[in-house]
Write a protein that binds this DNA or RNA. Structure first.
Lengths: 211, 211
DNA sequence: TAGATTGTTAATCGATTAACAATC
DNA sequence: TAGATTGTTAATCGATTAACAATC
């Protein structure tokens, strides 16, 4: 029986991972949940509980083996087996994502970007091609791509989304500021700038009012 | 007595807002919580409760006045009074954000970008200047900037963060994949790609296993 | 041993959902 | 009026935190 894992735990795991990776190599081989918690301003019990989900435990008084823990989290998150993805919309944001080399570290491999604008296609960004939309179906099918990243304007996002699903895409990472309608088994992860901005500006105005 | 508002409500408000704004102008003047809920795949009670936080209510059988609701949400989120921001790190991602014209719609105004690399400065992106780091302190102070956006590599993020705080920044939007240590009253909003990617790839691998 | 640390069980907290009365 | 819709109160659900026993 596999543990059901909550989204909140899932979001914290990459945070632990990047902290563990950033640790100096020459430090101790082991690290305690308490140390991690203090460094990241979290509760130690929470860290321990989260880690219990992915690793088979640390040793009392000693803590967790750092290298082992990194491996456990990476394996759990599936960062070891690379996922191929396509990106639709080679505007500024699309190109930024396409050129971002850090994704491979997270097991994501963007095969190519697609754009309707002919003048954009034919170019390359960090060795990744920008192709015309006409070639999308072919690539999705031959490479059995499962992840689609949408960076087109809101108005065309739904059409792009539908086409991706028709091509067998199972998970969509949506950067367009709009709601996408999808069938039940398709996962949509919205990356909405407005959402984070709302949190930011609200807290800010509340804070300022206190002075 | 102002209602204390939870982060989850705060994150849903921009979603309602963009849905309401996208509605055809020639449609009805009013809209019900049920309609909104169905369109966005949410519970109608939740929508009603959220809206109760920001507006002074709709009318039974009729619903909410659409234009009024848009105004209420925008005012609540503070989208009407623009917040000035500075952006540090004019790499690909930094430039993408700088060039993104949609921020003004959310009440955010990026005054300028800053970068240590001389060859990047002196340029303009959509009318926004890219300046050398030496001019950061001056701008922050003369314009009383409160928001800082960090798009530098992880290694230099903390140093940049400290310098922003020294210059009076109260809220930080962090795109660097690292944890930032800040004093109590500073708000950090992390925009971590790894986090969303973790949710995405985990659900994906769980789904695939079911076939 | 003593003390740091783990992992588990129970209590708390907060958010979502269900039920229902009020209203136009 | 009847029915759609609002808004509120109570119940449920899930996640976080607190307390504590187990272990090295």
């Amino acid at each position: 029986m596999t543990q059901k894992i909550s989204n909140s735990v899932l979001k914290r795991l990459p945070v632990y991972l990047s902290y563990l990776k950033a640790l100096p190599m020459d430090g101790s081989e082991n690290i305690s949940a308490t140390t991690i918690a203090n460094a990241l301003n979290m509760g130690d019990v929470q860290v321990r509980k989260d880690l219990a989900m992915v690793s088979n435990g640390g040793r009392p008084k000693v803590g967790y083996n750092r290298a082992g823990l990194i491996g456990d989290i990476e394996q759990f998150l599936g960062y070891d087996n690379t996922n191929d993805a396509v990106l639709i919309g080679a505007g500024k944001l699309g190109r930024a994502l396409l050129g971002y080399s850090g994704f491979s570290e997270y097991g994501l491999n963007i095969l190519a970007a697609f754009d309707t604008r002919e003048e954009y296609t034919d170019e390359n960004e960090n060795g990744k091609p920008i192709l015309p939309m006409s070639r999308l179906d072919e690539l999705c099918k031959t490479r059995k791509v499962l992840i689609g990243i949408i960076t087109v304007p809101a108005a065309s996002a739904q059409a792009v989304c539908d086409r991706l699903i028709a091509n067998g895409i199972k998970a969509i990472w949506n950067y367009a500021p709009t709601h996408l309608d999808v069938p039940p088994h398709i996962l949509v992860q919205n990356e909405n700038m407005a959402t984070s901005l709302a949190v930011l500006s609200k807290h800010l105005s509340a804070q300022i009012k206190n002075y």
